[in-house]
Simulated scan of single mutants.
Amino acid sequence: MSIVASSSLLVSPSNPKTNATSKLDRQSADFHPCLWNDYFLQYASDDLEVGDEMKKNIETLKEEVREMLISTMETPLKKAEVVESIQCLGLSYHFELEIDQILKQIQNDCVENNEITLTGDLHSLALLFKLLRQHGYLVSPAKLKYVLKQCPYRGIQRLEARKYISIYHLHPSYNEVLLTLAKLDFNALQKLHRKEFGNICKWDISCLEDLQDT
């Protein structure tokens, strides 16, 4: 489909005479002083750098989780539970490739004519259905129609991860490696975000007042 240019101009040509005689005064907002003063500058300190030991521990745990994900001894439903936990704990960005491979394999082996062929408890099958749908796979709800009636709550991912970390140890499929990694990863990201925010607060915005209008 070709795009035909409209005969009418979206922006009218400027009038030289008008531009010569008119001048827009630059408006400046009269903001109140910041209540926080220099409080957030403390976050720009090098003390908030993620230490080498923490980085090493995170990488070690990530490798353990990868081995868990690629293990051929786990059943598809068990792997689905691990993937769900990883997503809820805010760790999925570390394992996007592995998660995609797992769900693709499940789609190839356990879905026929858009229907899940596995047998299992309703909760596990509903979880598998949800994960496949979330990642764009066409799966019929069939006996899982009630899942579609549920309205999943979607909040800010990091805040939801923080809440889930605090209760994950109560989950039936609780895994110590995942929980430890989630805590370390959350703390590392917290330090990174604080440091970035502290660096932003160091900017001298007074120089913007000297910028000329273009």
Rank of each mutant, 00 (worst) to 15 (best):
M1P: 09
S2M: 12
S2L: 13
S8I: 14
L9T: 12
P13Y: 02
P13H: 00
P16W: 02
T21V: 15
K23R: 11
R26S: 01
D30T: 03
H32N: 14
H32M: 12
L35E: 15
Y39I: 08
F40T: 05
L41E: 04
A44R: 02
D46R: 08
L48M: 01
G51M: 06
G51R: 04
D52A: 14
E53I: 15
M54D: 14
K56F: 01
N57V: 06
E59F: 05
T60Q: 11
E63F: 09
V65D: 02
R66K: 05
S71M: 03
E74Y: 12
E74H: 11
E74W: 10
P76N: 03
L77G: 02
K79W: 08
K79Y: 07
A80Q: 04
E81K: 13
V83P: 00
V83N: 05
S85K: 00
I86Y: 00
Q87G: 03
C88M: 15
Y93Q: 15
E98Q: 02
Q101P: 00
Q101I: 08
L103Y: 02
N108G: 05
V111S: 07
V111E: 09
N113K: 11
N114E: 08
L118H: 06
T119D: 06
L122E: 10
L122N: 10
S124Q: 05
L127R: 13
L127V: 08
L132S: 04
H135P: 00
G136N: 01
Y137H: 07
P141G: 01
A142V: 12
A142H: 14
L144K: 04
Y146N: 07
Y146V: 05
V147R: 06
V147Q: 07
L148E: 11
Q150N: 07
C151V: 11
P152L: 02
R154Q: 08
G155P: 01
G155D: 00
Q157Y: 13
L159K: 01
I167Y: 08
Y174E: 00
E176W: 14
V177P: 02
L179H: 09
T180E: 04
K183G: 13
K183S: 14
L184R: 03
N187F: 03
N187P: 04
A188W: 00
Q190N: 14
R194N: 12
R194A: 09
K195Q: 08
F197M: 07
N199D: 06
C201L: 02
I205N: 08
C207I: 15
L211T: 12
